[in-house]
C-alpha cells in the first residue's frame, strides 16, 4: 500500500504555475529544461511536483533529481536551479491568444 501512495502522491509541474508566476514574467513551466543529472529535456510542466513540501520542488520524471527548488521566506524568494543545465524560454507567441490577466 505504501508503494502505491508513493507512486501517486505528486502533481504535474504545471500546478506550480501560481507561485512561479509571482517571480517570472514568462511561464517557466512551458520552457524546456534539461536535467543536469540525466540529460532528459522536456517542458518543465512535465516535472513532478511534490505537494506538502517545505518549499516548492520540481523533480525530473526520468531520474527524480531536483530540477528546481523555491522557498518563499516572506521577505525573499530563494531559487535553486542547479539541477538544470539548460532552459529554453520562448517569447510570447503573438496573435491568437487572449491577453494575460491584468487585474487592477
Amino acid at each position: 500500500m505504501t508503494g502505491d501512495l508513493d507512486r501517486y502522491d505528486y502533481l504535474d509541474g504545471n500546478a506550480a504555475a501560481g507561485p512561479l508566476s509571482e517571480i517570472f514574467a514568462i511561464d517557466v513551466l512551458s520552457a524546456r529544461g534539461r536535467c543536469a543529472a540525466c540529460g532528459r529535456t522536456d517542458a518543465m510542466a512535465t516535472a513532478r511536483l511534490l505537494p506538502h513540501s517545505h518549499g516548492l520542488l520540481l523533480r525530473c520524471p526520468g531520474c527524480s533529481a531536483i530540477l528546481l527548488r523555491l522557498v518563499d521566506t516572506g521577505h525573499s524568494v530563494c531559487l535553486d536551479l542547479h539541477g538544470l543545465s539548460f532552459l529554453e524560454l520562448r517569447r510570447q507567441q503573438n496573435g491568437s491568444q487572449p491577453n494575460p490577466p491584468q487585474p487592477t
Binding site: T2, D6, D9, L50, P51, S53, H54, R59, S64
Partner: peptide, 9 residues
C-alpha cells in the same frame, strides 16, 4: 501526521 514528501521515499 502530515507526510511531507520532498522526494521519493
Amino acid at each position: 501526521f502530515p507526510v511531507l514528501s520532498a522526494g521519493p521515499t
